[in-house]
Design a protein around this nucleic acid. Structure first.
Length: 473
DNA sequence: ATGTAC
């Protein structure tokens, strides 16, 4: 594979073989995956063979190996030109994403009550594999309301505050969700997990604004130095996972009927404009709404904990983004506006200033792009910029460098816990395994990823958040 | 990511 350095922040994989478009990777040389340990660059090239793909198979600076598509991958297909949709281009955790809430509180005032707050969050945030949830759904009919209405339904049922929905991508619910497209097994798994964190890299973190890089946008976003924030990273749990599994099987069986061949079975796909394609998108949208409701519920759980311990710590929602989703969007391709199916897997939509989908109070400044780092290193808030490449997309996190298996061999849970406490970061509820799998050493350098993202013109850096306490599964 | 495997 020929990898050409176009700029210090942009690399090109020349089309060869069945590739229909080049691969384009936004990264510095240091951030590129190690070909000996990580097949992600080959995956970028493989995605470039998908029917209907336009412009390029893109990857963000946090890219790494994933199921079929790389994590950090962005690929758009032309719906009217036989373009396909692929569940692997969304990922198993459909609409996994991040929500950032802002407390009306300076970190110095929180410190004396931090332990109490963390204890309150510890008991009010269900987490871990297949454990409990905040919201016990009354019936399968109510699950259908969640699948159709997402965070909007949660707020209608009292789990939210006015203004929450306006600060959610898609106003809290993806359109065209069809609960009937979701299988019975996924439904069963979904009944008991609305309002639960899960495990792996999912977390709830208490953070504070540490540095401001863009004064004007930070002011508009409400990010003043020292301000306490809550970052929630979770997705659609077992339900989304089951939807992905079911769809991959369906599409693997259907592909020959559509005359599609792909270099990797994990790239199973079907035309967007086909029964299988439409059914997947309808099920994916429903699972996405489940994920949106999930983050809404956990945001409420955080609010209740703040109310109990702080009293006046009221949390306002800055924004809620998804970083695992396929969306039908219209973009200029060459000299024509085209209807595209844009897959973002471990990549965040980053709408530019002035975009009509942004809420009025944020519209002039561009969409908040929330970039959680690994445990203990904090997070960034970026903003969408005009004319960004890759269909208005940006990075979604630090990006894994070591596999979970490799990560656990680098440090003990006791050592990691001590390191975090030494840095003044309170840890609650993390299993030893969960902790060591997520050691910061297993991830790329978040500062470098965000810098590359900004230098590549994907987004603007607004502020950095530093962690104070972490709740993990 | 995930009741960590068909």
């Amino acid at each position: 594979m020929e990898l050409v350095e176009e700029t210090p922040y942009r690399w090109r994989i020349e089309p060869e073989g069945a590739m229909r478009v080049p691969g384009v990777v936004f990264a510095t040389r240091e951030l590129l995956p190690d070909p000996a340990a990580d097949q992600a660059l080959g995956q970028v090239a493989a995605v470039a063979t998908l029917p209907g793909i336009v412009e390029a198979s893109y990857a963000m600076p946090d890219m790494h190996w994933g199921y079929g598509f790389p994590i950090g991958g962005v690929a758009a297909t032309d719906v009217e030109d036989g373009g396909v949709v692929s569940p692997g281009g969304v990922g198993f955790d459909i609409s996994c994403g991040v929500r950032l809430l802002l407390a009306d509180l300076h970190v110095d005032r929180l410190r004396p009550r931090l332990a109490a707050l963390m204890d309150a969050l510890d008991v009010s945030v269900p987490r871990g594999m297949s454990k409990g949830a905040v919201w016990r759904l009354g019936s399968e009919a109510e699950l259908e309301e969640v699948l159709a209405g997402g965070a909007r339904y949660a707020v209608e049922r009292g789990h939210g505050e006015p203004g929450d929905l306006e600060h959610c991508e898609d106003r809290g619910a993806v359109a065209d969700a069809d609960p009937a497209a979701i299988g019975s097994r996924a439904r069963e798994r979904g009944l008991r997990q609305v309002g639960s964190l899960g495990s792996g890299n999912h977390f709830l973190e208490v953070e504070a604004v540490a540095e401001v890089y863009d004064e004007e946008i930070a002011r508009a976003y409400g990010l003043w130095p020292g301000r306490v924030c809550v970052l929630i990273h979770t997705g659609s749990r077992g339900l989304g996972h089951q939807v992905c599994t079911d769809s991959v099987h369906t599409m693997q069986a259907a592909m020959t009927r559509y005359g599609i061949s792909v270099p990797d079975r994990q790239l199973a796909c079907a035309p967007v404009d086909s029964h299988e394609g439409r059914t997947y998108l309808a099920a994916m949208a429903a699972a996405a709404n489940y994920g949106r409701a999930n983050r809404q519920l956990l945001g409420q759980a955080a609010r209740h904990a703040f109310d109990r311990v702080i009293g006046d710590g009221g949390l306002s929602l800055l924004y809620d983004v998804s970083h695992n989703l396929a969306k039908l969007e219209t973009h200029q391709v060459g000299d024509r506006a085209r209807r595209l199916c844009v897959h973002r897997k471990g990549a965040t939509l980053a709408l530019p200033p002035g975009h009509p989908d942004l809420p009025p109070d944020l519209r002039a400044f561009g969409q908040p792009v929330l970039v959680p780092g690994s445990m203990g290193v904090g997070s960034y808030v970026l903003a969408g910029v005009p004319g960004a490449p890759a269909f208005a997309s940006a990075c979604h996190g630090a990006g894994r460098r070591l596999s979970r298996h490799q990560a656990v061999k680098t440090i003990t849970a006791a050592r990691l816990r001590a390191d975090l406490e030494h840095e003044g970061i309170a840890v609650r509820g993390a299993s030893a395994r969960g902790l060591t799998e997520e050691t910061p050493g297993a991830y790329k350098d978040l500062d470098a990823v965000v810098a590359a993202c900004a230098r590549a013109g994907l987004a603007r850096t607004v502020a950095k958040l530093t962690p104070i306490g972490v709740v993990k599964g």
